[in-house]
Design a protein around this nucleic acid. Sequence first.
DNA 1: GATGAATGAGGTTTCATTCAT
DNA 2: AATGAATGAAACCTCATTCAT
Lengths: 187, 187, 187, 187
Amino acid sequence: MIDRILSATAQVLAEKGYAGLSTNRVAAAAGVSIGSLYRYFADKNELIEQLRARSSADVLADLTGALTAAVTMPARDGVHHILSVLVHAVQRHRAVTTAMIAEAPLGAHGNILPEVERQLAQMTRLFVAVHAPGLDPLEADARIHLAMGVTLNACLRIALDPPPGVTEDRLISLTADLLVLGLVPDL
Amino acid sequence: MIDRILSATAQVLAEKGYAGLSTNRVAAAAGVSIGSLYRYFADKNELIEQLRARSSADVLADLTGALTAAVTMPARDGVHHILSVLVHAVQRHRAVTTAMIAEAPLGAHGNILPEVERQLAQMTRLFVAVHAPGLDPLEADARIHLAMGVTLNACLRIALDPPPGVTEDRLISLTADLLVLGLVPDL
Amino acid sequence: MIDRILSATAQVLAEKGYAGLSTNRVAAAAGVSIGSLYRYFADKNELIEQLRARSSADVLADLTGALTAAVTMPARDGVHHILSVLVHAVQRHRAVTTAMIAEAPLGAHGNILPEVERQLAQMTRLFVAVHAPGLDPLEADARIHLAMGVTLNACLRIALDPPPGVTEDRLISLTADLLVLGLVPDL
Amino acid sequence: MIDRILSATAQVLAEKGYAGLSTNRVAAAAGVSIGSLYRYFADKNELIEQLRARSSADVLADLTGALTAAVTMPARDGVHHILSVLVHAVQRHRAVTTAMIAEAPLGAHGNILPEVERQLAQMTRLFVAVHAPGLDPLEADARIHLAMGVTLNACLRIALDPPPGVTEDRLISLTADLLVLGLVPDL
DNA sequence: GATGAATGAGGTTTCATTCAT
DNA sequence: AATGAATGAAACCTCATTCAT
C-alpha cells in the first residue's frame, strides 16, 4: 500500500507538477481513500520526503556499485564510470527528479539527493587522499565541495536537459576530464 | 506603481518565503489595493516572472560590465573577475535569488537567470573562438554548455552556501582554474 | 456583516447545538461565503468568543442598571431585583446561553459570563463592606465566592430549567432570602 | 473488557481532554482493537454516557453512606458531613468530572450527576418533612430544587475551583449553614 | 469473538481572483 | 484608475464507523 501510494505520488508529480500535487489527487491516483493515505503518512510532507528518500536510496544503490567498480580502474575511467552511472540513475527517476529539482521548493526538503552527495564526497575525499596526499585538508575540502557541485549539476544537466548535437558520452567524458583536472591538478 | 509592487514582492519573499507569498500580502506591503495589483499584473505568475526578470536584468547589467572589463585581461584573470562579479551580484539579490532557487517551483519560471546564462554563453563562445580557434564547433558547444553549468552552479554555491573555512576568493580562484582548464585544455 | 454572522452563529447554535456548529454552516446560515466569514473572524474560536462576549456584554448592561437601582432599595429587595433582572436577561439569550453553558466545552472559553460574575462580585464586596463592616476580609471573600456560585447557578436554573408548579417569582424570592441570610448572617 | 475500555476512556479524557477523546485513541489506550470497542459500545455517545454513569454510581455509593450516617447527626452536622463526602468524591473523580463538566457538551449527556441529584433530593424531601412538617409541599419542592442547585454547584466549586486563602472546611461550613437556613428557616 | 485496514463525509482554513462602487 | 469586500474552489487533515478476515 505504501508503495502504491508512493508510486501514485511520483505519477501525479510527473503529470501535474509539484504545484498540482495534492494529497487528494495522490489518493485518487493510487485508488485509495484519503483516509488510507493518512494512515501511512503522517502528513503531506512525509509523503514527499519518503518519495525523495526512495529515489535517493535507489540512486545511492547504483552509486555504491559504481564506486566499488571504480576503485580498480584508472582514475579518469573511474570518474567516467561513476558519472555515467549517475546520469542513468537520474534518467531512470526522471519524473521524480525533475519534479523535485525543478519544481519542489527545495528549502522544504533540503537538497534532493543529500545522501548521494554525502557518499560521493566521502569517496572523493579518500580518492584525493590517495592521489594527492600532500594537499592541505582545507584546500582539499574546498575542491571537493566544488567538485560535488560540478558533478551533481553536470549529471542533472546531461540527464535532463542535454544540449543538442553532442552525445551523452562525450559530455560525460568532458566532465570527467574536468573533475580529474580540478581535483588533482598535478596528475 | 509597477516598481513599488515588484519591490514589495521581493520584500515579502525575503520576509515570508515563497510559500508565504500571496498576492494580497504583496498588495498590502506595497500600500496598494489588490485590485490595483491585478491592473498591472495579469496574475500571480506574471508578478513572479517579472520579479525574476528584474533581478535577472540587474545581474545582467553587472555581467556586461564585467565582460567588457575581462576582455582586456589575461584569460584566467578575466574569468576570475567575471566569477567574482557574479558572486557579488547574486549576494546582492540574495533574498530574491534564495527564494527563487531554494523555494520557488523553478519549473514554473524556467531557470532563474536564463538571460545571464545566454549572454555568458555567447561571450564564452567568442572567447573560445579566439583562444582555441581549432576547436570543433560542436565540441566547443558541449564544453560551453558544461561550463555554463559549472559557472552558475559554482556562483550560487559560493554566494549562498559557502563551505566553512575557505575564503570566498579561494573558491572563486579554484573555479576559475577549473573553467580555464576545462574550456581550453591546450592553453 | 459581523452582526449578521454572529446572529447566524447564535441561530445555528440554537438549532444544531454546539457540536453541530461548523463555520460552513454558520456562513450558509448568514447567507455569506465562507471566505467572508474568515475575513471578519480569524478562526472558529474567535467567532465563538465574540458571540459569548456579545451576550455577556448584553447581560452586563442589564446588570449594571439593576445594580444602580438596587442601591437605593432595602437589601432584600435589591437582591431580589438583581436576580430578577438576571433571570430575564438569561432568558432573553436563552439560545446562546443554553448552548454555551450546557454544550460548549467551557474550558475552551472560560466561564460563560466572567464579566458578569466579576462585576457582581465587586458590587457584592461593597454591599458586604457596608452592611457587615466587621467581617474578616478573607471570610467575606469566601462568602462572596459562594454567593456568586449560588446566584449564577440559581439564575440559570430558574431561567432555563425551572421546576414545575412554582412561580418564577417565588423562586427568585427564595434565592434572595438565601443570599441575604448567607451573606450577612447577623442582619 | 468493558471496564478496561471505560478506564481507558477516563485516562484519555484526563490526558487529552474532551476534544482529544477519539474512539481510536481509547481503543489504543485500552490495548483493544477498535472493532472490539464497537462490540461493547454502540457508538461514541454510549461510551461517554457509560463512563458518566460509572462515575455517577461511584459518587452515589459514597453519598448513600453519607446519608445513612447523617441521619443520626444534628441537622447542621449531617449536612456538613454530606457536603464533605461529596466534595471528596468529586475530587476523587476530578479527571472525569472536570472533563465532563468543563469540556463536554453537557447537553449531550444531561446533567453530570443526575442520579446523585435525584437521590439527594429524595433524602432532602424526607429531611424537610421531618424538620418542617408544616411546609406546603410545593413550597418545599421549590426550596429543594434550589438547594440541589446550591449543593451541587458549591461542591463542584469547592472541589475543582476553590478560592485561595480559605480552607475547604470553612467553605463547606458556610455552605452547610446556608443550606440549613434556606431549607428550614424557622429552625 | 476479535481484529485493524479501510473508508469518506465533513471540518477548518487559505488565497487567487472578480467586480460593483 | 483605484478600491477592497466578497467569492468559492480547493487544500490539508480527522475520526466515527464498517466489514472482510
